[in-house]
């Protein structure tokens, strides 16, 4: 049971609160509460099903940003054995907003990279809330080139509100770092599969996702700008974030229709944060399928495949 409830999950929070209360009281008085608990649990499930079946784009943004949603390191630790983190850009610094290293994904030696948001105050600060600085993108480039040299497939886990907008990031060439990362992605002679696990925030996300296959979790979002940012520019009011979220077409189903996303991975009932293990397993299965589909392609074919995929985009609208 999550401990953070989103605004629209209030009725669910109330029901789950009632269940906890019953259990607590039941323990003391020795009465049979099992029947009442299971009745309430069925109600929770119905409510979750109803709510999550028709999430608005803005609600999806909330789910994608849910603090208890599994983040990149959890995917890596669950899916990748012998995970061996690598660090640093060899030029300026180590940026913990980018995590990555060598490991074995379902038996296959590979290289994984992720944007890590952190799960508590301390780790959020350490990972800079998943907002990558130039040194992070340069570290990602270094790791991708390493994978290329040794013929290892690359998996990236995308989850960022956007590249870090700071004076120091600009001073060290944030724009160049992102541009070069896109270029490196497109040059790889090894399979590159990207999975948007939460927020795919603008250039900061595409820097790791110019991939052969781009997957999204069902409630993940991928957008050119945050709904809040879009609202304040185009509507001149941050209050219009809900409308902006709708206009931006940032949900996995819309992006699938547009050919930006190749496959959508269904999430457990109530979102990945309600059953992270199940969500991660489903993601692993999908990644394995995609990697297998790229098996046997040589370097030139992989590069061409990636180019063709991006060149085909935008030929049709919704």
């Amino acid at each position: 049971m999550p401990t953070t409830f989103l605004d629209f999950e209030k009725p669910i929070a109330d029901l789950e609160g009632a269940i906890m209360e019953l259990r607590h009281r039941g323990n003391g008085e020795g009465v049979d509460i099992a029947e009442e608990v299971s009745r309430l649990q069925a109600k929770v499930e119905r409510q979750l099903r109803a709510t999550y079946a028709k999430l608005t784009p803005w609600q999806r943004v909330q789910v994608a940003r849910h603090p208890e949603r599994p983040h990149a390191l959890r995917y890596i630790e669950t899916l990748v054995s012998e995970y061996t983190p690598l660090a640093g850009d060899r030029a300026f610094a180590e940026d913990a907003a980018i995590v990555g290293g060598l490991g074995r994904f379902r038996g296959r030696p590979c290289l994984v990279i992720g944007q890590e948001k952190g799960d508590d105050t301390e780790s959020r600060i350490r990972h800079n809330f998943g907002m990558v600085k130039p040194e992070g993108y340069r570290k990602a480039q270094r790791l991708m080139k390493l994978a290329d040299r040794f013929g290892l497939p690359v998996i990236t886990f995308v989850d960022t509100a956007g590249a870090y907008p700071g004076v120091d990031a600009e001073a060290r060439g944030q724009a160049e770092a992102i541009a070069r990362s896109i270029e490196v992605c497109l040059e790889l002679g090894v399979p590159l599969v990207s999975l948007v696990i939460g927020e795919g925030g603008s250039g900061g996300a595409v820097a790791l996702a110019a991939a052969n296959r781009v997957l999204m979790l069902e409630h993940a979002v991928y957008s050119v700008i945050t709904p809040e940012g879009c609202a304040s520019i185009l509507w001149r009011s941050a209050d219009a974030a809900q409308e902006a979220a709708e206009a931006l077409r940032l949900t996995s189903d819309d992006l699938k229709k547009l050919g930006v996303c190749d496959a959508v991975i269904p999430e457990p009932l109530g979102g990945a944060h309600r059953d992270p293990e199940a969500a991660i397993k489903a993601a692993g299965d999908a990644l394995e399928t995609e990697l297998t589909s790229l098996d046997g392609m040589d370097a030139a074919t992989l590069r061409q495949h990636r180019r063709d995929k991006f060149l085909a985009m935008g030929q049709k609208g919704l």
């Binding site: 541009a179 896109i182 700008i225 520019i233 931006l248």
Partner: peptide
């Protein structure tokens, strides 16, 4: 921004 994700995809393109 009015071309949303398709404008973002012009970065790789």
């Amino acid at each position: 921004m009015q071309e949303a994700i398709l404008s973002l995809m012009q970065m790789p393109r």
